[in-house]
């Protein structure tokens, strides 16, 4: 890995080190050779140290997940054997079978997909519209409104958990828009409160306002309506930003635990995070099943991640850096 690091071998290219490069006549002296070997040694040593540290942290990051494989493949009682065995004598798939037969794992997974995908689609839609309005439309009170929206950016979600819960419950009691469409233990009641983060609006506004103004003016002169401009001109141009924001929202939503725990505690609307947490009983815990469920949940995400890693990394950075 670091064997190929030979900066003095670089030929042809003139770089700033040439200014301090020793003369040819000096290169034959023994002190030069000593210095060179010291330089090589110091660099190799430093690289070795760096890669050892990095590999340690790679093990720290990946190891815990790999350690799940062992308990997932044996029955929960053998976990407590003494002396402990990491590699199971007779690996079984009983834990996975239990997960599919005796718990509602598949329905939790389906609910999670509905929840996360619904949140992503709805928030992309509303954020693009609002971002476009704030970036390109003139209307009285625009700056004031944008300031108000932006000032809620720093509101911690957990601080409005309780009133949002009450809000959803109260709206659920209303005659027409309430149950069965909206309220506690409905999909919309689960999804809509998660779509309000001002971050997306802010990001979309930033992206749209970086597009050249001439595009809009040309389209407007040609008689295109605002909606047509948005869908025919702006949307194709901000597609990458949409993908980034979409992945970001999806990742945050499917990992959410607190809101689904509160808003959809019923068995029919339980999502994966709440479901897996409910597997960990107060007194007796099926450790093997728990490990199997965690692995089952992580594997598809990991596969998707390995295919689209660049987008994932960009998405999580976008949330942080686009401010």
């Amino acid at each position: 890995m670091f064997l190929a690091f030979r900066p003095w071998k670089k030929e042809g290219k003139l770089n700033y080190m040439d200014a301090v490069r020793p003369k040819e006549s000096l290169k034959s002296s023994p002190s030069y050779a000593r210095g060179k070997s010291r330089y090589i040694f110091a660099n190799r040593f430093r690289a070795l140290f760096a890669y050892l540290v990095l590999l340690f942290f790679v093990a720290f990051a990946v190891g815990p997940v790999l350690y799940l494989i062992s308990p997932a493949l044996r029955d929960s009682i053998s976990l407590f054997d003494y002396p402990p065995k990491i590699i199971p004598d007779e690996p079984t798939l009983d834990n996975f079978r239990f997960l599919f037969d005796s718990t509602r794992y598949l329905s939790w997974a389906l609910n999670t997909i509905i929840y996360a995908a619904g949140t992503t689609i709805i928030s992309l839609f509303t954020n693009v519209l609002a971002g476009y309005a704030f970036a390109r439309l003139q209307f009285p009170g625009r700056n004031l409104l944008f300031f108000l929206v932006l000032s809620t950016l720093m509101v911690p979600v957990a601080a409005v958990l309780a009133p949002t819960y009450l809000m959803v419950r109260e709206i659920g009691e209303l005659p027409i828009i309430g149950r069965p469409f909206f309220g506690l233990d409905t999909y919309l009641g689960l999804i809509l409160p998660c779509t309000v983060s001002p971050l997306g609006v802010f990001m979309m506004r930033q992206f749209i306002s970086t597009l050249p103004v001439g595009l809009y003016e040309a389209a407007r002169l040609d008689g295109a309506s605002e909606w047509r401009i948005l869908f025919k001109i702006v949307l194709p141009l901000i597609k990458p930003a949409l993908v980034v924001l979409g992945i970001f929202v999806f990742m945050i939503t499917w990992a959410n635990f607190l809101w689904p725990l509160v808003a959809a505690s019923g068995d029919d609307y339980r999502v994966l995070t709440v479901g897996i947490a409910s597997l960990k009983g107060q007194f007796v815990t099926h450790w093997g099943v728990l490990a199997a469920a965690s692995l089952m949940t992580l594997i598809p995400v990991t596969i998707v991640f390995l295919f689209f890693q660049k987008w994932f990394v960009q998405a999580s950075m976008a949330g942080a850096l686009k401010q």
Binding site: F125, T126, N127, L129, A130, Y132, A133, L137, Q138, F139, P140, R142, L145, L148, V149, T152, V155, A159, V160, A162, P163, T164, L166, M167, V168, I171, L192, P193, T195, V196, P198, V201, E226, W227, L230
Partner: peptide
């Protein structure tokens, strides 16, 4: 006219924002 044109774009987000962020803060 400007306001009505903009409100078509703003309404979907602002309604949700009011219902699940602004009002809950005040209500809390």
């Amino acid at each position: 006219r400007y306001l009505t044109r903009a409100s078509g774009f703003l309404a979907p987000y602002m309604i949700l924002w009011l219902a699940f962020l602004a009002i809950p803060v005040g209500w809390a």
